[in-house]
């Protein structure tokens, strides 16, 4: 309250007489020496590092990505422990999976990752065609969803549901959680597409795009582990 009125009066006096303004500035400087250090804030999001290294996105996004990676690490561990309880059951049920679906989805995600990487590079070069690359990556991601849809419906038609036994419980929970992340990733890619042309390298907007791209790559590599874990690792 008080300080607003005070700054206002300083402003008015400053316009009126230069001498008074100078005097006031001197007083304010004096006062500043006695008062506690003002809090400046932690500064802008994107900062140039001295060592020439570059944090993809911004440092904060890695709390999120590494955190999510650790949740999936727990999931992988829980699955392997669950598998150890009934290796014969898992082995027999695994035979019912179609490895071609899994392999096709791996390829789709790898292609989409290359497209996203190229898209980020295109933005760096301020190439206006960058959104096309992200749209192509979204198409690959949608392809993944379509393959999963066919795979799920085929399994459910054959009576292979999460309630059947532990293998199908893990299969649906693990792939379902991954699919949930992939759908979030598609949302992120859509936001990237919409912002690609307006992002200048080094800006906060560009940092968000880089961070979003890293999230997509994480969705990719989590599948790279889930595929062998669920489809390929036999007894």
């Amino acid at each position: 309250m008080g300080e607003e009125q005070a700054t206002e009066s300083v402003g008015r006096n400053g316009v009126g007489s230069l001498g008074v303004a100078a005097e006031l500035a001197g007083e304010a400087a004096l006062a500043r020496i006695q008062k506690p250090e003002p809090v400046e804030g932690r500064g802008p999001v994107v900062r140039q590092r001295d060592d020439g290294k570059h944090v993809p996105g911004e440092p904060g996004v890695w709390i999120f990505i590494l955190g999510d990676m650790s949740i999936f690490a727990v999931l992988f561990g829980v699955y392997i422990v669950g598998r150890g309880d009934a290796p014969a059951l898992f082995e027999s049920q695994q035979q019912l999976l179609n490895q071609n679906f899994g392999a096709l989805n791996t390829i789709l995600l790898l292609v989409s990752s290359l497209l996203v990487y190229s898209g980020v590079n295109a933005i760096r070069k301020q190439d206006l065609r960058a959104p096309l690359l992200f749209i192509a990556a979204i198409v690959c991601g949608l392809g993944f969803v379509v393959v999963k849809y066919f795979e799920y419906s085929q399994k459910i038609d054959h009576g292979l549901t999460p309630a059947l036994n532990d293998f199908w419980m893990y299969y649906f929970v693990l792939t379902g959680l991954h699919l949930f992340h992939l759908l979030l990733g598609l949302g992120v890619l859509t936001l990237i597409t919409l912002n690609a042309r307006r992002a200048k390298p080094g800006s906060t907007r560009f940092a968000l795009i880089e961070g979003g791209a890293c999230f997509w790559h994480m969705v990719d590599f989590l599948w790279i582990i889930l595929f062998p874990l669920l489809y390929l690792v036999g007894e």
Binding site: N13, L24, E27, R32, V39
Partner: peptide, 18 residues
């Protein structure tokens, strides 16, 4: 709290100068 103390000090200085 620090920020508010700083603003109060500023205001007091301005009032004193006036």
């Amino acid at each position: 709290a620090i920020e508010e103390a700083a603003l109060e000090a500023d205001a007091a200085a301005a009032v004193a100068a006036k």
